[in-house]
Amino acid sequence: MSTYVSKEIRAELDAARIATLKKASRLRVEMGDNTYKILKLWKDGFTVEAETTPRLRGLVDIFDGANHLYQCLIVADEDEGGEMRYEFKRSTAAHDSAPLDFFRAPDAPIALLGHDD
């Protein structure tokens, strides 16, 4: 029995696999004003569709829907099966507020209320 698959059939299988991944993923990567769908995300990197996404490089932001997850410095790794793989050089979790430079007690009041005399 032969396991040979023609180039045309392999291309169709890759296209169907990528279409399924694109439907299932809410993740996206933003570089400047451009947004691209992330097919897979893991601890050290992610993949995007190689055919429709230009070569990304440098500082990007990763979102899950409207939630900003990470700001990352990336480098291209390899193109495999229609997916372009990127590795993180640096990945920083995004926060919705600025970090504090002092200790805030857990039971500290949120605000001070004035009273009228």
Rank of each mutant, 00 (worst) to 15 (best):
M1Q: 06
S2H: 10
T3S: 02
S6H: 09
S6Y: 05
S6R: 08
K7A: 15
K7E: 07
E8R: 08
E8C: 01
R10A: 15
A11K: 15
R17G: 11
R17M: 12
I18T: 13
I18V: 15
I18G: 09
I18N: 10
I18K: 08
A19L: 06
L21W: 02
K22P: 02
K23S: 14
K23W: 03
A24Y: 01
A24H: 10
A24K: 12
A24S: 15
S25W: 08
S25G: 07
R26A: 10
R26T: 11
L27H: 06
V29A: 11
V29M: 06
G32I: 01
G32P: 07
D33Y: 07
D33Q: 14
D33V: 02
N34V: 03
N34K: 14
T35M: 05
K37N: 07
K37Q: 05
I38L: 10
L39R: 02
W42V: 03
K43N: 10
D44A: 15
G45V: 07
G45P: 03
G45I: 07
F46R: 11
T47A: 12
T47C: 11
V48I: 09
A50F: 06
A50S: 14
E51W: 02
T52P: 08
P54F: 11
R55I: 08
L56D: 11
R57I: 12
R57F: 15
L59G: 01
V60H: 04
D61H: 13
I62G: 11
D64F: 05
D64E: 13
G65R: 06
L69Y: 05
L69I: 10
L69K: 12
Y70G: 08
Y70V: 10
C72Q: 01
L73W: 09
I74E: 04
V75Y: 05
V75N: 13
D77R: 09
E78D: 11
D79Y: 04
E80R: 12
E80S: 04
E80T: 05
G82N: 03
E83C: 03
M84P: 00
M84R: 14
M84A: 12
R85P: 01
F88Q: 03
R90W: 03
S91C: 12
S91P: 00
S91Y: 01
A94W: 04
A94T: 05
A94C: 06
H95D: 07
D96P: 01
S97A: 10
A98P: 00
A98E: 10
D101H: 12
D101V: 01
F102G: 04
F103M: 02
R104T: 01
A105R: 14
A108M: 05
P109F: 09
I110P: 00
I110M: 02
I110C: 00
A111G: 02
L112G: 02
L113R: 12
L113E: 14
L113K: 08
H115S: 14
H115A: 13
H115N: 08
D116M: 14
